[in-house]
Design a binder for these strands. Sequence first.
DNA 1: CAAAAAATTGGACAATCGTCCAAAAAAGAG
DNA 2: CTCTTTTTTGGACGATTGTCCAATTTTTTG
Lengths: 216, 216
Amino acid sequence: MTPPSKSQAKAEAKRAFLIEQATICLAEKGYAHVSLRDIAKESGVSLGILHYYFASKEELLLEVIASYKERFIAELEREVVAAPLDNFFPALAAVLGRSLLEDRKLHRLWYDLQAQALYTPVFLEQVHHTRNRLHDLIARMLKRLQTERGAALAVDVSAASSILYSVIDGMILQCLLDESRTAAEAISRFQLALHHVLESLFSSGSPATHPVERGD
Amino acid sequence: MTPPSKSQAKAEAKRAFLIEQATICLAEKGYAHVSLRDIAKESGVSLGILHYYFASKEELLLEVIASYKERFIAELEREVVAAPLDNFFPALAAVLGRSLLEDRKLHRLWYDLQAQALYTPVFLEQVHHTRNRLHDLIARMLKRLQTERGAALAVDVSAASSILYSVIDGMILQCLLDESRTAAEAISRFQLALHHVLESLFSSGSPATHPVERGD
DNA sequence: CAAAAAATTGGACAATCGTCCAAAAAAGAG
DNA sequence: CTCTTTTTTGGACGATTGTCCAATTTTTTG
């Protein structure tokens, strides 16, 4: 099971590096306008290298999606699942707000790739995988809220988490599109709206009135 | 204000025709992979014609967005605003479900263009315009529900309609991505989830238990 | 050190892209 | 009908794309 040589590990590291640089390039220009030459230049290598490590452009982009997925989900796992249960919703809003501020272009890329997945079946598979993992993460948290605290859910956990995911998804897209305001202002509106929705959808502890926690 | 000649009207008709064909082509292949040659072939004209009626590819695509916007909003105006108030939410679910079934590819295109707008400012302007009109349409309906019937909104109409729009937006994307089931099944799930959200977000008349109306 | 393997280069390649234009065809005006 | 204008054509243009490869450099191995 151990890698047969040390060069194998080195090659894997280079692959990871190229995927990371490709992600940066893709997040900057978008799927429709990114080229392998852009990625090669951004990575400081020649064009042929990309075909040395990746069979095709499609394979590279698939690995970009998988890589992005792992990173974002890991961050969510770390910061949300570990958050105290008594103010879970504010913690969720804080984490998402910070992520929107720091990794705005990555979120933009995610919607780009999701839209592209609607046309390219092999992308859709990867996108579906990511969404399922995020869905499960939300479901796990809702189950904890339901059992460890007496949170009342109008529907079963699976349906509720699916709804909550779609709600958050739609509101993040709204936040990204909201350019009439500054980024911080748009995120603030996002957090407030999320707070309202969560209060309405789930009868959490505090009923209302206290504003959402700010991330700065 | 009247067009100075009849040929002007004819040219306008041809423009509209080309825009329509371009929409079909774009909905089929997506923004990233559509070419002017595709559109020309789909329209049964030569390539040069497109540059005779449209200065550039970008201008043509902008008109596609504007055209799509007008058609979809007009349909929503007709079928939703005219719906009876006492079962507004089921009527909304029925209209959206039917639209998802009949114009699935157009909805897909809409998410593609929104994602593209996050990279191309001139597209973002058009997308923003469309979203504002849809936002206003929802706000108008919520205001009617609030005044003519005693619907209790936890927040002001503007915030509520913004939230409702994002919720529907996220749920439609979820429906489009849900390919593990048949189209009818995915739409059914969409309608059920929408029903749950609407019941939770706004304390409408009937509290629960009766399933959402089907569109067939 | 020398030989073998891996990594990297720079460019060629066919294909496709948006753009543009001179000339032909069609339509309208007198 | 002829002349003018509008519409349409088919192809050329340079730029860019993903793909691929022979030659070179670097690294590893014996």
